[in-house]
């Protein structure tokens, strides 16, 4: 599945390299990758026996689009100085983060089978020290947006075209530090910053509007000085159009409110908040994978066999 956009052995300018780092895959191709990513998520969760299923499946489409279409990155050189910045702040969706990274070529697919194990390099919540390609460690909510602001400020200082993609959860909006950061991003007019919020309307203890209502989210971000785009977070064409719109916005940061369904792709658990932090058994994964035209044994074998490195 993996390839990056760099013609090797050709001397490129910063701008050329930056452009080449973007895969810009079509919506059709992205849908196919997203389907593979969902299969990876279900398989690695069942294999590990713990982890967060619901949010990993709700955020799959836009994170796939960031890494396979939008962001300039080079998994072969994860610390490439001219890379775009991407980071997932609601980092309990680590099954999603690792699956997309593996499909994109940051590390072999078989490493997904070491998720949450002492032998593996994929911690339950992401550790930048252990997993090459992550920008910062994460797992405590409400911290990532600030990090993205720092990156965006550095890019502005340097006159660099870098863009910053920062994913958050909707439950995460309950953290006060998110709003410190939201105020700060607008204050510094960071139009190179795009935040994407996974509005799946669920958190551990129940629906967000019952636990601590975060709405009206669009009004809040508008009031804080952001450009707000509200989309269906499972429609690839819409996601790509929102990315394009964000690029055209000047003088303010943009937030995409991705309206999603927790557990998307496995109909038996969709919109069921009890699946926030629960993994499928192997039998349940088998059933879920059937809906994606796959099966647990076959997908496990795919991960195990597929050790390709970039």
């Amino acid at each position: 599945m993996m390839m990056n956009g760099f013609p090797r052995g050709h001397c490129m300018s910063v701008h050329e390299r930056w452009v080449a780092g973007r895969l810009r895959w079509s919506a059709d191709a992205l849908e196919q990758v997203a389907r593979d990513v969902r299969c990876d998520i279900l398989t690695l969760l069942a294999n590990a026996g713990s982890g967060h299923t619901g949010g990993s499946l709700s955020g799959t489409d836009y994170l796939t689009a960031i890494l396979f279409h939008e962001a300039a990155i080079d998994p072969g050189q994860p610390n490439w100085a001219d890379r775009d910045f991407w980071h997932v702040s609601n980092a309990h969706v680590s099954p999603l983060i690792y699956s997309v990274m593996a499909e994109r070529g940051y590390f072999p697919l078989r490493d997904l089978l070491g998720f949450r194990s002492f032998e593996g390099h994929l911690q339950g919540h992401p550790s930048a020290h252990d997993t090459i390609g992550l920008e910062v460690s994460a797992g405590s909510l409400g911290q990532g947006l600030s990090v993205a602001i720092g990156v965006a400020l550095a890019a502005k200082m340097d006159g660099h075209p870098r863009r910053c993609y920062l994913c958050m959860g909707d439950g995460e909006q309950q953290e006060g530090s998110v709003w410190e950061a939201a105020m700060s991003a607008a204050h510094y007019k960071l139009d190179n910053l795009l935040a994407i919020i996974d509005v799946n309307r669920m958190q551990i203890d129940g629906p967000t509007d019952k636990i601590l209502n975060i709405e009206p989210l669009a009004d809040k971000y508008q009031a804080f000085g952001w450009h707000v785009i509200n989309i269906d977070g499972h429609d690839m064409n819409t996601i790509l159009a929102a990315f394009e719109e964000a690029r055209s916005v000047k003088g303010k940061p943009t937030v995409i409110l991705a309206q999603t369904i927790m557990g998307k792709g496995w109909s038996a658990i969709e919109d069921d908040y009890t699946w926030h932090g629960r993994p499928p058994t192997k039998e349940e994964a088998d059933e879920a994978l059937l809906g994606l035209d796959a099966n647990y044994g076959g997908w496990w074998a795919r991960l195990e066999a597929n050790g390709m490195m970039p």
Partner: peptide, 22 residues
């Protein structure tokens, strides 16, 4: 950078700056 009265944000912004050469 004047960050205002927002220490948590300031710490995170500093982390972001450090990722890209500052």
């Amino acid at each position: 950078f004047q960050m205002g009265i927002s220490e948590q944000n300031m710490a995170g912004v500093a982390a972001g700056l450090s990722r890209f050469g500052k």
